[in-house]
Design a protein around this nucleic acid. Sequence first.
DNA 1: CATGAATGAGTGTTCATTCAT
DNA 2: CATGAATGAACACTCATTCAT
Lengths: 221, 221, 221, 221
Amino acid sequence: MTSVDEPARPNGRIRDAARTQAEILDVATQEFARAGYDGARVDEIAARTRTTKRMIYYYFGGKEQLFTAVLERAYGVIREAEQELDVEHLDPVAAIRRLAEVTFDHHEQHPDFIRLVSIENIHGAEHIAASEKLGKIGSPALDVIRRILASGQESGLFTADVDAVDLHAMISSFCFFRVANRHTFGALFGRDLVAAEQREHYRTMLGDMVIAYLTADRAAD
Amino acid sequence: MTSVDEPARPNGRIRDAARTQAEILDVATQEFARAGYDGARVDEIAARTRTTKRMIYYYFGGKEQLFTAVLERAYGVIREAEQELDVEHLDPVAAIRRLAEVTFDHHEQHPDFIRLVSIENIHGAEHIAASEKLGKIGSPALDVIRRILASGQESGLFTADVDAVDLHAMISSFCFFRVANRHTFGALFGRDLVAAEQREHYRTMLGDMVIAYLTADRAAD
Amino acid sequence: MTSVDEPARPNGRIRDAARTQAEILDVATQEFARAGYDGARVDEIAARTRTTKRMIYYYFGGKEQLFTAVLERAYGVIREAEQELDVEHLDPVAAIRRLAEVTFDHHEQHPDFIRLVSIENIHGAEHIAASEKLGKIGSPALDVIRRILASGQESGLFTADVDAVDLHAMISSFCFFRVANRHTFGALFGRDLVAAEQREHYRTMLGDMVIAYLTADRAAD
Amino acid sequence: MTSVDEPARPNGRIRDAARTQAEILDVATQEFARAGYDGARVDEIAARTRTTKRMIYYYFGGKEQLFTAVLERAYGVIREAEQELDVEHLDPVAAIRRLAEVTFDHHEQHPDFIRLVSIENIHGAEHIAASEKLGKIGSPALDVIRRILASGQESGLFTADVDAVDLHAMISSFCFFRVANRHTFGALFGRDLVAAEQREHYRTMLGDMVIAYLTADRAAD
DNA sequence: CATGAATGAGTGTTCATTCAT
DNA sequence: CATGAATGAACACTCATTCAT
């Protein structure tokens, strides 16, 4: 069982167990993202793994719990990435644009995660609700936004009356839609929202939009 | 069987056929929106109809074609609503805000449609691609946007360099995300994006965002 | 309904009915021969006809009766062909060889008929048994064989103690097997029994076999 | 569950699996022979078995593969019987007559096999073609025939210019037809080719025919 | 800790046939 | 004489899951 390129050791099996679980999660992520919750096949996931279907039940309990575990890990990866955000040395405008761009890039780089979130929404977020790890977990990005917003509003640069959650929703909307709805949008309007040659265009557009919204001249209001 | 507001006639069954098909589409729309494509059950759709499962196959051919028919009708409803847009008597700023609000309202009022579109994206928009009715169908709203944009850009009011499709994507993103992702967003951040008491807040926020983007002072650029 | 290249007449519709029935029988013959009784599809037969499925039921009553009608017509065609046998001016040996060759050719030329007979045997000949037209119908060829045999036996040329029915079975066996079992025989032994370049070989072989059997020197018996 | 004539053991279930598969094949053989490929019902096969329909799919994959497995086993039985042929101590004439009789008896004793072969021919031998076990499998009988023929031709006893495959076809034709077409032949001519009291008559007739063909005086040719 | 064999309940689909006119 | 619309019953097949060791 222990692979040749690593020394045997007392807890080798435990490591194998963790590795097997990780492998199952990898494959399950792809399969759920590919076909949706009901479209995914436990048989197919097992077949693409070095273990057997029985192990999926042994480690995770069932299809539902497996999907929850997939979601938990996917959200964990996002959190880790967000924790590495380092924008607070910038002025508020630059910081918010940078944050938007990082969010934009992250969505583009993780289409499977986007699909999983869409799928979870189709099912009313019941797996998140049932998960101890995911309930009202918030997001590291939110704290960053909060601090940038406070700074910008204090200085009078930001005129908009938004809180961090709303701004996060605004930024996420654009990033999420571009990836999640690219197929229907492309089929209906003939425009590929994730075409590489348009990436900079949309990245800039997002930043412009957020900055314009935050800094708009509201004297007339 | 013949309803009271129409005269009885020899081929009354034809009317029944249309009505039965409409009933199947109604139920199928709900079932697909509720459970996704693979989660939906043809048996369940039939059970909630006055006809039998056999008739679904007789009228539509199969589950896949039924889903396509559901999508076609749902998009048709959107088109009809968009064709009634009457904003061109307004000045460009008011017109674009009005358009955004109508889009906003429409998304809120048709959560099933939003879910169907999410589901179709999970499946790579393959049903739209296969549909003769839906391929590159465009959208009446697009023409409206095009005209407003032209007018606003001509008068110098709109400074942004966007075309109609991109602006449509920007508006749709926010409206779509708010409804489609409300479950995960609510579960994660504890905020209900579609709570009635927040509707005006988000409706205004969308309008502000779009207007700010279009009219931002770009002298510094 | 009446085709343009024939004059309208009082009983034109009756003729059309007969023509429609003949067309249905043509298509049904192909379809039953192609796929077997249970494999044949009433829908498919109707689709390849200028009329509708309903007409099949109108004219024939059902799938079972349609198959019976197909069999009846197919056997009728064979009978007609056999009635044109003209071998009695030949000497017994030449006559029997000629008869064998005609039977051989007929089987080769009517593979669909062979298939129908195989299919009917799979079903225990129940349709023939139920048919008024086909029960113990015999065969014109049988009378011919009977006369040739009598003549050959009388003259001492034919030494074998067979009756016409047995000889008919012997000849038919070879002709029928060659066509009916060509697929399994070919797949198993790599030899195509109906290959054109082997036709003469097998035709001669059949004649030789029958003649040898009938004229064998039985002194030692 | 464990039968009395074998010791109980840990993996007794494996033996059960083999037994269950054999039972399914037994019942499937009967059902396919009774009703043809399309006429056979997987439900019916399952109902007459101690297991469930699900197991048929578990063990065989589907109806088509089950039919192929039935064919493979049936041909296997034939091969085994043919391998026990022991005729080479006889002189060529006696040997060939013995071989014909064994073939005759075998066909009579296995009417289900005959039906399966007829059914497979209706379907163009596609299952044999798809089977790794059955493609160009040949037949042990063929080797026996080959050796008898060589011996008989060398000694001048056999005058006919046939090879083993053709002679096999000739013998099989008669044996196969007698069983396969007994229903239509009986219904049409009123003679039961497989009636017990006629068996010797036909058995002798077959031998006489083959011997006469092989040893006919061809001086006049 | 690990697993190959087995399975109940249901899944989408198709069939020959008949109804109403 | 003719027919488009409708249908009950059954069809082959698949699913997530658990048993026995």
